[in-house]
Design a protein around this nucleic acid. Structure first.
Lengths: 140, 140
DNA sequence: CTACATCCTCTAGTGGCTAGAGGTGCAAGA
DNA sequence: TCTTGCACCTCTAGCCACTAGAGGATGTAG
């Protein structure tokens, strides 16, 4: 088996080199063996774990949630209820975030459209910020 | 004129007490006058400024952007092109974020629906994370 | 006068990295 | 063999926008 350097692991997993060291530091990834010259040497299993972490991060899971998901993956006989619960909670978060951002979008659109491109004292952008009663405040 | 304590300013503006002090520290809000006992004493103008800041933060503007917006508000004769540009940039950000979150939502829904609530080794949640090729990866 | 809430300053912590300093290891070309 | 130059090492500090807590002063109601 050929040794995988941290740079190689980074390229293959899509996780940046300092981030890999960071994950090791916070115990998300086990410390790998070292070469004679004290350089980290990864195995294929580490690459899979890193890729798993990256996907989970891309889906917005927090590191603590990923810790749980990883420990579940390590014990395939367990019930997947926890994994399901974590994913569902994340789904609810995402839905809430989309709703709130959609309200913001509408508000920003009104601000931008209302801007007559004149002077500040007639600018709807500044006006709305100064007096929020003018906006639809659907996100309150 | 009655003196407004930091607590009163907090209640009326909706900005937390430590956050008001923080805004003073980073120069977003001018240091107010002090009472004999060295306690901050705010004026109505400060309340308006704090409320402006809170609205802008709720709309997701960064502190630096708010700094610019505030300085624009202070000079009503200027063109509002900068305010317009800032709001437009924020709008683009929000639209991008909504698109990306919508893709995530679809992916999470697939994960959750596919979960047969059995054991981990058949769990779609874990599976998708371990092998992202299975997902639609529309956010790449 | 005595509670007790509110205020003060200061430091350190949050999450999830990222940047930089200052030094070592290693592989390929001259 | 030597040297060049990149990749690696550790460690500390910084990012954003706050938030928490220690330890003490002030202000107010009963």
């Amino acid at each position: 088996m050929k040794k995988i350097t941290i740079g190689g692991a980074s390229k293959r997993s899509g996780v940046k080199v300092p981030t890999i060291r960071y994950y090791e530091g916070i115990g998300l990834l086990a410390a790998p063996s070292r070469s004679e010259g004290n350089q980290r040497s990864y195995e294929p299993a580490d690459l899979r774990r890193l890729t798993f972490i990256r996907h989970a991060r891309e889906l917005g899971f927090e590191v603590d949630a990923i810790r749980t998901l990883l420990s579940l993956q390590d014990e395939p006989n367990q019930s997947c209820a926890s994994a399901d619960a974590i994913a569902k909670a994340r789904l609810v978060e995402v839905e809430q975030r989309i709703r709130s951002l959609t309200a913001l979008k509408a508000e920003l659109e009104m601000m931008v459209e209302g801007c007559g491109h004149g002077r500040v004292d007639q600018c709807r952008v500044i006006e709305v910020l100064a007096d929020h009663g003018e906006c639809m405040h659907s996100h309150h």
